[in-house]
């Protein structure tokens, strides 16, 4: 059983890391299975022989996300104790998250020690792109899953030397809906929106923009060529989240990236 989160090997199906020793702990898993079978038998028994007259109501009042939140709190404690500044990057697919990361890593790799977690349903294409910058990276494939959760992150960071890390960047699955609900233990949720998307995206996907602290408006080099009202888009984002911090950037030309780097550096220094 995992000592960090108490999970058995069967619960590791969402990610693809391979540390052999965990897989030997089959006892826990079998025990759970047996347990379930016993229940099934008991249910059938009662079902066949009597109508239950002792139904009992139990007040629960438990947050459904409590388990994720507990694991996220554990991650946060780890990150704080190791002095690591952690960002959770979220957006729709194709907004340029990976390109922003590549540029950021190439420009700041000498200044700060980075690591990256790449979340995608399938492939390690993004991890290969990050690895090419020389930064340690762990790809997490969620399979059918539409978001990263705190449990996946807690195991992904086992791959990094946390004692010698300044900044951990987590690129979530490209999806403007589901990742909004799952705390990973990050310092900030950073939402990326590109100008080739609709300017009303903050209104169409308000939960994500409400839960993010920072917004990167990407691909601003394309603004002269398209009908995208950047000011209107930012006004929409501020309606959903009046405190959101917005950077106009182009990960292609580098425009606006310095302001983002300064913010990133300030956060990393504060976390040390």
């Amino acid at each position: 059983m995992c000592t960090t989160c108490g999970c058995g090997p069967a619960e590791h199906h969402h990610h693809d890391h391979d540390h052999g020793h965990d897989h030997k702990h089959e006892h826990d898993h079998s025990h759970h299975d047996d347990h379930t079978h016993e229940h099934d038998h008991g249910n059938e028994h009662r079902h066949h022989h009597k109508v239950d007259t002792t139904a009992k109501s139990i007040t629960v009042e438990t947050d459904i996300l409590a388990k994720n939140n507990r694991l996220a709190a554990g991650n946060r404690t780890l990150f704080t104790s190791k002095g690591v500044f952690v960002l959770n990057l979220v957006s729709s697919p194709g907004s340029g998250k990976t390109t922003i990361l590549e540029r950021t890593l190439r420009d700041l790799n000498g200044t700060f020690a980075f690591a990256v977690i790449e979340g995608d349903q399938q492939t390690d294409n993004d991890a290969m792109r990050i690895a090419a910058t020389g930064v340690p990276v762990k790809q997490v494939n969620t399979g059918a899953g539409c978001h990263l959760d705190a449990h996946m992150v807690c195991h992904a960071v086992e791959n990094f030397d946390m004692d010698n890390l300044d900044i951990l960047l987590i690129e979530n699955v490209g999806n403007l809906v589901c990742p909004a609900s799952f705390d990973l233990g990050e310092n900030h949720k950073v939402v990326v929106l590109s100008v080739t998307e609709g300017e009303d995206k903050p209104l169409k996907y308000p939960s994500m923009f409400h839960n993010a602290d920072v917004m990167l408006l990407n691909k601003v080099d394309l603004l002269p060529h398209i009908d995208f009202d950047a000011e209107k888009c930012k006004a929409f984002a501020r309606r959903v989240n009046p405190d959101i911090l917005i950077f106009d950037v182009s990960s292609k030309t580098g425009e606006g990236m310095n302001a983002w780097y300064e913010w990133l550096g300030a956060g990393a220094r504060k976390s040390r």
Binding site: S57, D63, L65, S207, N241
Partner: peptide
């Protein structure tokens, strides 16, 4: 989340309910 205050039109709104996600009770 993008709703404005009906009284002053402002967008600085703290959500006080509506974000719940709870198992309230069960019967066994």
């Amino acid at each position: 989340y993008y709703g404005s205050c009906p009284s002053c039109g402002g967008y600085h709104v703290d959500i006080i309910s509506g974000e719940e996600l709870r198992v309230k009770e069960l019967e066994v």
